[in-house]
């Protein structure tokens, strides 16, 4: 575990979306959340969260000021966790409609795959995380259609992967930041801590 006096500095992409909910979750599990609105703010971070929100809006910001390249470089060498829109940004390929993505996670993701807001749902399902069933809040959620051979599926919803890990990259199509259960954030912070110790 990291020293109490030096908490892990974990960035949260804060151009748009529920970045405040992620910051709160990170603080609750003992990390220091840092808002990232510009590429230069990626420097010195131990890890990064790409939050929920509108992936099209986030892309507009990434396409300015060389943010896209800086983020891609950062995510290639550091632990990163994307939820919902963040998972879409991390994917190798995005459908419905096709859009640019960082290609960090070996997966194909379909946007708004479960329908509109009236189809949003809260599901309890088993996961690879210890401690029993996990609450999963799906809001206009994407679907992971395909995953590469090295991607580990940590939880599924009716057969679809909803929480995955590939090395130090994690992605969820639901919103653990909107639940009180902090096991998913803890799991990510443990990855960040393990990488920081190396």
């Amino acid at each position: 575990m990291p020293e109490k006096s030096t908490p892990l500095r974990i960035g949260v992409l804060a151009v748009q979306g529920d970045y405040a909910a992620h910051a709160e979750a990170l603080a609750e599990v003992g990390a220091l959340p840092i808002a990232v609105r510009k590429p230069e703010e990626l420097q010195g971070l131990d890890g990064l969260i790409l939050p929920g929100g509108e992936s099209t809006t986030m892309l507009k910001f990434l396409e300015k000021r060389h943010f896209f390249t800086a983020l891609k470089d950062y995510c290639s060498g550091h632990p990163v966790f994307g939820t919902c829109a963040g998972a879409i940004l991390l994917a190798r390929e995005v459908r419905n409609p096709a859009q640019r993505s960082l290609g960090i996670l070996d997966a194909v993701v379909e946007r708004n795959a479960y329908g509109r807001q009236i189809d949003s749902s809260i599901v309890m399902a088993d996961s690879a995380l210890p401690g029993g069933p996990l609450e999963m809040v799906f809001i206009r959620a994407p679907r992971i259609l395909e995953t590469g051979p090295e991607v580990e599926v940590l939880a599924r919803r009716e057969g679809d992967p909803v929480l995955v890990r590939h090395g130090s990259t994690m992605a969820a199509t639901f919103h653990p930041e909107l639940s009180h259960d902090r096991r998913v954030h803890k799991a990510f912070v443990e990855i960040v801590a393990a990488v920081a110790r190396r």
């Binding site: 804060a14 151009v15 748009q16 979306g17 529920d18 970045y19 405040a20 909910a21 929920g52 929100g53 509108e54 809006t57 919902c84 829109a85 807001q117 949003s120 749902s121 809260i122 809040v137 809001i139 206009r140 919103h175 909107l178 009180h180």
Partner: peptide, 21 residues
């Protein structure tokens, strides 16, 4: 934290996603 029904949590959830926009 507000104690809310599943339905209201989902509704507020979408509002959360629109923040900063």
């Amino acid at each position: 934290k507000i104690v809310t029904s599943t339905s209201l949590r989902l509704k507020i959830g979408l509002a959360e996603m629109l923040k900063g926009g």
